[in-house]
């Protein structure tokens, strides 16, 4: 019935994208380990202490030691927990934090899935990631975990709205949902210049979306012990931990792509163009990661009603007005992006 056999026409692409995923996932996991180390070092520098400094040179092997500890601990499943869902939740969270990387472009054409609706894909994945947390909170059968899960669900759904409008404003200026197109549209001017307030809104919403301080109410250790993952131990906890940091890097990379021109050098002249694109992307991502860490060191936790107020009454109206303003400016000035030829 078909000229090429099933296994060749459909098996090869699977193998190809599988290998590609490994090329992305392995450095990502190394970056996660490094990020936990850098976070502790930066925090300790802010606190005027030394931070991890025992394991390896400058304490560099601390993440490895932590990982080993996590692997060798006992996995405890609470008696009253829903076994299946309890184990499913961290896996889901971890998988979702990895698969969003499929659409992140590292350089011109260097992307696992160069799909038309890359931005929507990212948004869909980030809206799915709330399920890992709700399932974890519910399956634990513990009131702290459940309260944490409810908080985080309400928080993530609220801030996704303003993130959505920020994304719409950006895509309006680009005329495409493809992340590579979004980067290329910033060739002459990074979006941080015309859309600077959006960058702030996006960054703060990302803090809420990744449940970082000052929006870490779902974890709120002083009231909820550790929120939705109180009952998790060993590797199941480790998966949540890895997912959180992988998400952090993802969000920073996305902010860099949307507002700081992704892999593009700051100036399109000689010394800057020698540095390859992925390095630029990594540098820009690191900038936002550093901001994430410094915010954690500097800002106290929000109260829950303040968190909701900020999301719904400040960010949502502002991003909506900005969206309308963007549309008006684009139409009046005749800067609307060209439609694709059809």
């Amino acid at each position: 019935m078909f000229d090429t056999p099933f296994w060749i026409s459909y098996g090869l692409p699977v193998v190809h994208s599988g290998l590609w995923s490994l090329v992305i996932i392995l450095p990502l996991l190394v970056a996660v380990a490094l990020l936990t180390y850098v976070e502790r070092k930066v925090l300790s520098a802010v606190h005027l202490r030394r931070g991890p400094n025992v394991v390896g040179p400058f304490g560099l092997f601390q993440p490895l030691a932590d990982g080993l500890k996590m692997l060798t601990k006992e996995t405890i499943i609470p008696t009253n927990a829903n076994r299946l869902l309890f184990l499913f939740a961290p896996i889901l969270t971890f998988v979702l934090s990895l698969i969003a990387w499929a659409v992140i472009p590292f350089d011109q054409g260097v992307v696992l899935a160069d799909i038309n609706v890359g931005l929507l894909y990212f948004f869909a994945i980030s809206s799915l990631s709330v399920y890992g947390i709700i399932i974890a909170g519910w399956a634990s059968n513990s009131k702290y975990a459940f309260l944490g899960a409810l908080r985080s669900a309400a928080q993530m759904v609220s801030y996704e709205v303003s993130i959505g409008f920020v994304l719409v404003s950006v895509l309006l200026s680009v005329g495409s949902l493809n992340l590579s197109d979004i980067v290329m549209a910033q060739k002459n001017l990074w979006f941080v210049v015309p859309h600077f307030p959006l960058l702030i809104i996006f960054f703060v919403s990302m803090l809420a979306e990744t449940k970082r301080t000052p929006f870490d109410l779902p974890e709120g250790e002083s009231e909820l012990v550790a929120g939705y993952f109180v009952e998790y131990s060993a590797l199941t906890f480790g998966l949540f931990f890895l997912a959180e940091y992988a998400n952090l890097i993802l969000m920073s990379a996305l902010t860099a792509i949307l507002f700081l021109g992704g892999w593009l050098p700051p100036l399109n002249i000689e010394p800057f163009t020698w540095v390859p694109g992925p390095i630029w992307l990594a540098l820009k991502t690191s900038l936002f990661l550093l901001l994430f860490i410094l915010v954690r060191a500097a800002v106290p936790r929000y109260r829950y009603d303040q968190l909701m107020r900020l999301g719904w009454k400040v960010f949502l109206p502002f991003s909506l007005i900005w969206l309308v303003g963007t549309a008006i400016v684009l139409v009046v000035m005749g800067w609307l992006p060209a439609l694709p030829a059809s």
């Binding site: 609706v117 929507l120 869909a124 809206s127 399920y131 709700i134 409810l150 669900a153 309400a154």
Partner: peptide, 24 residues
């Protein structure tokens, strides 16, 4: 693909979360 992702964003990201909320 647009409909697929909008379905996920709207129904899974918002509607089903609220369902789950209420049911739980």
């Amino acid at each position: 693909e647009f409909l697929a992702f909008i379905l996920i964003i709207v129904y899974l990201g918002a509607v089903a979360v609220l369902f789950l909320f209420v049911v739980m």
